[in-house]
Design a protein around this nucleic acid. Structure first.
Lengths: 200, 200
DNA sequence: GTCTATAAAGGGATAGAC
DNA sequence: GTCTATCCCTTTATAGAC
């Protein structure tokens, strides 16, 4: 931990690291304090309880993570380019933080209501532009019909699932981290091909 | 809890339910005891520790779950039928136990080595038959080339990911359990279509 | 704001009666 | 085998000095 950043920032970084790795129930305040290079009492001084600290971190992670996921969807790009950029960015981001999806899905499962209330619906309009685009491409005969929901869940599935299954994947194929990331690098190319073929 | 089953069986059922829901770190021995309708001491009488109980349950869940996943792969079926049956069975199974994938991926992340040692590699031959089939279909021109690894991870992604993301999905689209399962029922049809188009 | 020391609660594990 | 009572370590949280 660098000395030139504020204590609160040190706590945030440390807590984020430990919570993402261990989850709420598995994390220890002592471990977070150690990771931050401070002592436990400071954690309670800045955030009154473990729950509050967790909640704060969780929101921060989610809010940093979700906008990146939907940004490209509204870009003014032809469908194929949009898919390519989306996959490229999404997988690139996950290579830096491979544990985030499992973290989010877990804690969302443990507390679905709060999540929805606090993070709020990703405004229901985000898929509108993409929806129009799919309809238009279908009209001119470039693709067959597919609902925007199915399209999105398939696209996200193909990008994210391997990261969720990373330990199993590496176990079964006896693959190192390097090999796994090389595989995902390949998928930046193969997923768009797969997607385009699937809807053409 | 029924009275006509053995205590050990009651413990297994209760522990399985609680561990799958809460994970190892989040589960409480007291909660398992309550769920089983017995007291904590009995848990230690049958399984010396929480870790041992968890380990036993985890192995049981994995061993019951994985064979079903690979069974169809070696069936003697044309590719399309094989995909259809696979998707049908996999999604059908997950509708009964939607929390299993997250449970397995979580605890595998927490202890990847042990998992590999104990569960063992899903023998490296399981994909051979499917691999041959993909090569043959490519040779006769029915499909384009796709490695058996990509094929499998894509197929599994499309089936499993929605269950991992279930809470988020339901939150974003404000969907009830019924609606979610209806959506997955549709996917039993749409995934095979999507897959076949993607590789043709 | 930051520390040490300690309280208070939680939760896994065991002893011992029946 | 099953229970109650209890031990005792772990972990969260607070008090109080500096």
């Amino acid at each position: 931990m660098k000395k030139d950043i504020s204590t609160e920032e040190k706590i945030k970084q440390a807590a984020s690291k430990v919570f993402v790795k261990k989850g709420l129930a598995g994390a220890r305040m002592q471990e977070i304090a150690d990771e931050a290079g401070i002592n436990k009492a400071m954690l309670h001084y800045y955030y009154r309880s473990k729950d509050k600290l967790f909640h704060s971190i969780f929101m921060e992670v989610v809010k940093e993570f979700t906008p990146k996921i939907i940004g490209v969807l509204n870009a003014d790009l032809p469908l194929q380019k949009k898919i390519e950029r989306y996959v490229e960015e999404y997988i690139g981001m996950l290579k830096n933080d491979p544990a985030i999806p499992l973290f989010i899905f877990n804690e969302m499962k443990n507390n679905p209501k709060e999540f929805i209330e606090k993070v709020g619906i990703v405004e229901s309009g985000v898929l509108d532009k993409l929806n129009d685009q799919l309809i238009e491409e279908k009209r001119v005969g470039n693709i067959r019909f597919i609902s925007v929901h199915e399209f999105m869940i398939n696209l996200v599935s193909l990008c994210v699932f391997p990261f969720l299954a990373k330990p199993m994947f590496q176990g079964i194929f006896n693959a190192s981290d390097d090999e796994f990331y090389k595989f995902m690098e390949m998928r930046k190319k193969s997923i768009p091909v797969f997607m385009m073929a699937a809807i053409s």
